[in-house]
């Protein structure tokens, strides 16, 4: 019983589907173990970068976020955590906010409608779902 040409096509199709779903899993899975810094503007996620790695000690990655009409915030990511290093908002609360480094923590700039949030599974025992402030 030799498989016909179409049968082989079916099997190739299956292989492609399996490959694609592994690709999909991988992009999802990489977010799962590592922490992500998510930048939201007015509720929309506009950028999402991986949190610092141990070997990147001392390095500082700065992301400039233009929030429209000449307004901006600069988000700094280092091995110490994430902070807003500079902004031209009127209250500068985001710049004064303490450094965040745990999932569930966030820095908010209300005048610019900007939220910088750390997401992912915490490695620590005393991880929290949220913080009341």
């Amino acid at each position: 019983m030799k498989p016909k040409i179409g049968d082989i096509f079916v099997y190739v199709f299956i292989l492609v589907l399996i490959g694609l779903s592994f690709l999909g899993l991988k992009t999802m899975g990489s977010n799962r173990n590592n922490l992500l810094v998510q930048i939201e503007l007015d509720g929309e996620v506009i950028d999402s970068v991986e949190m610092w790695q141990e070997e990147q000690e001392g390095e500082l990655k700065e992301i400039r976020v233009d929030t429209g009409q000449g307004r901006y915030n600069i988000v700094g990511i280092s091995s110490q955590g994430v902070s807003v290093t500079e902004a031209n908002c009127p209250d500068k609360l985001c710049v004064r906010s303490p450094v965040i480094r745990e999932p569930g923590q966030s820095i908010v700039c209300i005048p610019h409608k900007l939220v910088v949030r750390i997401i992912g599974e915490s490695q620590r025992d005393n991880a929290v779902d949220d913080t009341a402030s």
């Binding site: 498989p3 016909k4 049968d7 079916v10 299956i14």
Partner: peptide
């Protein structure tokens, strides 16, 4: 003409 019943059945299952 291109498919056996097994091929069709597999595609159906997929």
């Amino acid at each position: 003409i291109y498919f056996s019943l097994m091929g069709i059945s597999t595609a159906g299952a997929v």
